[in-house]
């Protein structure tokens, strides 16, 4: 009996020391999770989640500070992907953060614009060009539709227009499965 006790203790001593050594020796730094979350987020940088941009929100999700259902532009699909990635349960979009909308771009009414540059400062992706006292224009291809420029405009000349289908963006629809109708 005593031998068993002694052998076990000795083994424990060695293994314990080894583990303590290994835990410091092979420490891993960095957090690739944030990158993965950030890749799922739509990069509109709209801040509707309550964080200044997609990456801060990704960091917040990774550290458990934010929930996964705070991103309206990502929509249900985005939440589902996040839920899959993080092994959490799907939740519907949190209403206080907004609703899922069709993709749109900001358009500046050139007759009203006074060239104040406020929208240029607001734009998180530098998609508005122009200078002080000059007409501003939204570069449609670079606009993420975040709406951050709408509020600062003192003359309310920025409108969000939904993106219409063109031949380049038109999509074939999922074939209808006709089995049920055939009954």
């Amino acid at each position: 009996m005593l031998t068993a006790l002694l052998v076990m203790t000795a083994v424990a001593l060695v293994l314990g020391a080894l583990l303590g050594y290994a835990s410091l020796k092979f420490k891993v730094e960095g957090d690739p999770l944030v990158e993965k979350i950030d890749a799922i987020l739509p990069q509109t940088q709209c801040g509707q989640c309550g964080f200044p941009g997609c990456r801060p929100y990704a960091t917040a999700i990774a550290s458990g500070e934010a929930d996964i259902n705070q991103c309206p532009p990502g929509g249900e699909e985005g939440i589902r992907k996040l839920a899959d990635l993080l092994g959490r349960e799907f939740k519907s979009l949190s209403e206080e953060h907004g609703v899922e909308k069709p993709k749109s771009v900001a358009v500046i009414d050139e007759n009203t614009c006074i060239g104040c540059t406020l929208c240029i400062q607001a734009c998180p992706v530098d998609a508005i060009v122009g200078a002080a006292k000059q007409l501003h224009t939204v570069v449609a291809g670079e606009c993420t539709g975040c709406e951050l420029c709408v509020a600062p405009c003192p003359v309310d000349c920025i409108a969000m227009e939904p993106i219409v289908d063109t031949l380049d963006t038109w999509k074939w629809r999922y074939p209808v499965i006709q089995i049920k109708q055939a009954a």
Partner: peptide
């Protein structure tokens, strides 16, 4: 359907990558 869906996804991905870069640059 799959092809146009893949193209759309690629466009979205490019757009979001560009947006991320521009955001980070800003």
């Amino acid at each position: 359907f799959s092809k146009s869906e893949i193209w759309a996804r690629e466009r979205d991905k490019e757009a979001s990558d560009a947006a991320r870069d521009r955001f980070e640059f800003k």
